Amino acid sequence: MANPFNFLQEVRAEAAKVTWPTRKETMITTGMVALMVVLASIFFLSVDQVIRLGVRFILSFGG
């Protein structure tokens, strides 16, 4: 088992090597994710509506 003090020193050293994104990069990435969520939502809503209409059309022959 490693010494906890050495472990914490290694963790801090590794964390210092991380390249953190700038505020601008974070905002752009967040905006792109939000845009993709909206586009995916619209796409799946459209597909759902088309399938609903198709199923209603098919089931209208049974009644």
Rank of each mutant, 00 (worst) to 15 (best):
A2I: 03
A2M: 06
N3W: 03
P4K: 12
P4D: 01
F5R: 13
N6Q: 11
F7R: 10
F7E: 06
F7S: 01
L8Y: 05
L8K: 12
Q9R: 14
Q9F: 06
E10T: 00
E10D: 14
V11T: 10
V11R: 12
R12M: 04
R12S: 03
E14D: 12
E14F: 02
A15M: 12
A15H: 09
A15L: 15
A16K: 13
A16F: 00
K17D: 06
K17A: 09
T19L: 07
T19M: 02
W20P: 02
W20S: 10
W20A: 09
P21I: 02
T22F: 03
R23A: 05
K24V: 05
K24D: 07
E25Q: 15
E25I: 01
E25A: 04
E25R: 00
T26C: 08
T26H: 04
T29Y: 12
T29A: 14
T29N: 10
T30V: 02
G31L: 09
M32A: 10
M32E: 10
M32Y: 06
V33D: 00
A34T: 11
L35M: 13
L35I: 06
L35S: 10
M36L: 15
M36I: 13
M36F: 15
M36S: 15
V37R: 10
V37P: 00
V37A: 14
A40R: 04
I42W: 08
I42K: 07
I42C: 13
F43H: 02
F43Y: 11
F44W: 15
L45D: 01
V47Q: 09
V47M: 11
D48P: 01
D48F: 13
Q49A: 02
Q49N: 04
V50S: 07
I51F: 12
R52T: 14
R52H: 14
R52N: 14
L53I: 01
G54C: 05
G54P: 01
V55P: 00
V55H: 03
F57I: 04
I58C: 08
I58H: 12
I58Q: 14
L59W: 05
S60P: 13
S60V: 09
F61M: 04
F61Y: 10
G62L: 13
G63V: 03
